[in-house]
Design a protein around this nucleic acid. Sequence first.
RNA 1: GCGCAGGUGGUAGAGUGGUCAAUUACAUGAGACUGUAAAUCUCACGCCUUCGGGCUUCGGGGGUUCGAAUCCCUCCCUGCGCA
Length: 390
Amino acid sequence: MIKFEIIKKSKKSGARLGLLKTPNGLVETPALVPVATQAVVKTLTSEEAKAAKCQILIANTFHLHLKPGEKIVKTSGGLHEFMNWSWPLMTDSGGFQVFSLGFGHDLGVGKVMGFFPGHKGAVIDKNAQPKKVRITSQGVFFKSPINGEELFIGPKESIKIQEALGADIIFAFDECTPPFSTYEYVKKAVKRTHDWAKICVDVHGNPSSPRLRRARQALFGIIQGSKFEDLRSESAKFINSLNFDGFGIGGDLGETKKDMAKILSWITPNLDEKKPRHMLGIGRLDDMENIIKSGIDLFDCTVPTHYGRRGIAFTNSGELNLNKSVFLKDKKPLDSKCGCSVCQNYKRNYIAHLVKAKEITAMRLLTFHNLYFFNTFVESLRQKIKNNQI
RNA sequence: GCGCAGGUGGUAGAGUGGUCAAUUACAUGAGACUGUAAAUCUCACGCCUUCGGGCUUCGGGGGUUCGAAUCCCUCCCUGCGCA
């Protein structure tokens, strides 16, 4: 079972310094949870992910259910053994795929709306359904992106799959609500998410009378409600009332960073402060301090790995796009202040060459550096909490 | 020297009388990406623009035609073959 200990609470903000104990080791929080959708941090080995200071990874229920299937993982000794990662692991429930393969795919948008002038007219109203996904009160009918085959995942299915996968922390099955949703749509979706949350708790076991599975795997409930104050706070209260071990905060978060902070302020006061809070899918460098100040302990984000594969390096002096020809003549390391092995051993000119030559190693070096850089950045934020700076 | 084939925008390479400022690819430049159907996608790419359009281009020069990258003449250059 996990244990979450809060070491220090900031006096300046809602930030918390914590220690999350899992059956597979400790996580110092706040912490970034790098994304390993298919049981791998794309391009890296598990040892490399560890060397890049990753403390905990998050894999995906939907993707692993399709390939290779949870039975293979289970008979291989579970996710940790399967991927040779003997540290903490989470699995996401598949709830994000309800959105990303549904309305996200239809509209060509992510869950962070920002400003999409081209989609200004898009409205997802009460009875809307995505084209390739059918959402019902029981669960969701997906079409496999691999072969088009229909598959059903509801709360029970998601939990069963996650139990077979065997991560330390699993998430309740939810519906990630898309941007452009009307209040009516979100209200309906939140109701579904809440009904499913109850089923997830029932299926996985209650901590007060834990089933064996629950004793090993913590279950986090997910709060939805989009940008609507009453729905967010209602969702927080409801999820808090169920016997979860921690919380996930999901869905879209308005249009600006201010919106995000405001939305978090509607949620966190309603949550048991002893339990860890995970912000789902948020973690750009300029988001981290804000969400940590809002009382977030864990957050996962694809940006360091995804952008790395696109040729982008994050540095103390901003982003570098190694696709640009200027870097072919640049003999500096990616970041002269970075202590990672890539910055110790390689220069921008070489990495830019590998990027332009489409060599796999380019993606490996950038992924490694970005993860190390992000993890070091979070480390510095933990230090700031310690030093009463935030 | 003769014969044949060619010379098109940064490169490769389409186009063979009007719909061509010229298909396409690559290169180049800009932008996007936040619980990963993502080593992807979008845009620009002769010059100028009050974004309506205007101007100069397809080896050089000349010609035919209402109109030429496309046809004719000539010159220059490249490749292959024969001397």
